[in-house]
Design a binder for these strands. Structure first.
Lengths: 335, 335
DNA sequence: TTTATTTACGAAAACGGTTGCGAAACAATG
DNA sequence: CATTGTTTCGCAACCGTTTTCGTAAATAAA
């Protein structure tokens, strides 16, 4: 309604629009006296600048995109919080996009991000993604990209992850140390580096411990709906595993439910450890041993890097690699 | 870099920019032949329109704001998913803002929303908010607002909630029916309608059941950090409650942990029911009886209403009130 | 053939800020 | 006094797209 813009201010103060603009931006060209008058009238009339007019001219949107596989996950919720906290302090706005774990969606989203709508992109790729083109296109348009958690290895840019390999190793060692002889690794993707790295850690540990081939299993729960059945099958085998590593949080509930259903006691018959940031971990039945990822910090770090890339063109994101370690928190499920 | 805009297309095709613009928007004024040529060159040169130029001219941003207290909460995560799913299908973009339960933050956020950056606002107010001015300002600027879950009663606009009163009643009745004599209600705010309504339901139930005044307690866990201590105090009373209603999800973990710590058996010594969308509810120790809110549906419904308000100026949001019922899912914690 | 009517397009003014440059006013310097 | 410098402001172009209006040519109607 009240369309008070720079022109209105200019008319009322008998000044030119350029003077108003400069005054509002605190330009050295404008006298303190004039600035004060402008500011006063601006607040009095409740002047709010049109961000798109400004973006158009300055070719800066003060907006970033956050592209996630999904948000119904504690990890990503916390990461968003971290990102948001940095963005807010920098005066940036945050657009959220969900790929729903589909490459096609992710591609469309990044397509749009080339429009100038955003100054930078934070992305955790979908489990389907193994191409790099769509991300490359952003780079050729000089739009900084930073990966967090789920990276795409072929792309040269900054990435913030946790120490996935070490954690995979640590998780497996923990199970072995607690007496597991037939550990299994539950993954959700054959291509996601987070899964692969955690898996490699697992492999290294069982290799080193001399676990026979037939006693180590790797299960890919690639589709959400089939997860229960797959886990059930796994646990109904005659020589079922006696230790499980859930490589991501969403595997936890199906695992627990299946164990309860099949009356398999955790931790006596099977020990469970999971990569998760669940705050209900300590009150599960039994309390769940977790590799807790520093989701909030990862979000913050990724955002911080991105803003460096955005604000200093001299800053080279390509070699930046930040690894924020996770913590193993031992609870009853692996006792 | 490749700054291919309408002008570039125009030059290459020996046409005017207006013709290009119209062709791209499939205007009847342009011949099919020309349209085809324009489209082809556009895709060939990978032309991507500048959204801000368009927004500036058309005074439509194709963007909405979602203002939340926080996102580290299953309810809001799911709600975002619902909102996002509708926005995506409508070709809208979603800006996320967090108030961190502070009125001052919320006010700043809504201030910015007046700039034309967004075409509408979905909001779940902070627990601190009891003023309405900041929301009113949006209305006077003709920016549609829709509340979801946490509404501000003084404002006349659409709202999507769950049947809070009924659920409060249902929860209390459930506890009473299961044999509780001294039920307590754990709230997080003295002003949030969701808390008040749930509380009113609780009050009605205990009133009706004739529970003596001294045997019903209402505890306000207003600050996050003090929550543990407050709950501990509550449960260390000589005449401690034998039934607890957690009015929001984040109270659950502290309650369970405290019970475990004090060796108070759930459900034998105290029964617990919670308003929560936790997917770990069935695997908690013991499995938690929940009032499960249809978070995803609430998000979808709120977004749908908002878009109606945005797209049809004739559509009057003021009288819209949608109530999507929650479900009581009984589990061990109230057995 | 003349007069309407369509069809297909272009010119130019928006939208609301930003910014390079020139200019006036005044002060300082030689 | 002439010259140079400083301060403060306005003019006008510009960002990329949309949209109103005008018009020439082609077609249809008279």
């Amino acid at each position: 309604m009240s369309k008070v813009n720079i022109k209105v201010l200019a008319d009322q103060l008998q000044l030119s629009v350029s003077t108003i603009s400069k005054a509002l931006r605190d330009s050295y060209e404008i006298s303190d006296e004039t600035k004060k008058k402008v500011m006063e009238l601006a607040t009095q009339l409740n002047y709010i600048p049109n961000p798109y007019a400004s973006s158009l001219r300055r070719k800066k949107s003060k907006t970033i995109a956050v592209v996630l596989p999904e948000v119904a996950d504690n990890f990503f919720s916390l990461a968003i919080n971290g990102i948001q906290s940095i963005a807010e302090s920098k005066g940036y706005h945050v657009l959220i996009y969900l790929s729903h774990e589909k490459y096609a969606n992710e591609k469309n989203i990044l397509e749009d991000c080339q429009s100038g709508r955003v100054d930078g992109v934070l992305i955790s790729i979908s489990s389907e993604t193994n191409s790099a083109e769509h991300i490359n296109k952003l780079q050729t348009r000089n739009i900084p990209v930073v990966f967090f958690d789920r990276e795409q290895e072929a792309i040269e840019t900054a990435r913030v992850t946790t120490n996935d390999f070490d954690c995979g190793l640590m998780a497996a060692k923990h199970l072995l140390q607690k007496g597991c002889r037939r550990p299994a690794f539950l993954s959700i993707s054959q291509s996601l580096p987070i899964c692969l790295n955690r898996l490699e850690g697992f492999k290294a540990a069982v290799q080193q411990a001399g676990v026979p081939e037939e006693d180590r299993q790797i299960v890919y729960c690639t589709d959400n709906d089939g997860m229960y059945d797959q886990i059930k099958l796994l646990l109904q085998q005659p020589n079922r595993p006696d230790g499980l590593i859930a490589s991501v949080e969403k595997i936890v509930t199906p695992v627990y439910l299946t164990c309860h259903e099949l009356k398999i006691n955790i931790p006596n018959e099977v020990k469970v450890i999971a990569f998760a940031t669940l705050d209900t971990a300590p009150i599960l039945n039994p309390p769940l041993t977790t590799i807790t990822q520093p989701a909030f910090e990862i979000g913050k770090a990724a955002a911080t890097l991105l803003f460096k890339g955005i604000e200093k063109s001299s800053f080279d994101l390509r070699k930046e690699r930040m690894i924020i370690p996770s913590m193993l928190i031992e609870r009853e499920s692996t006792k």
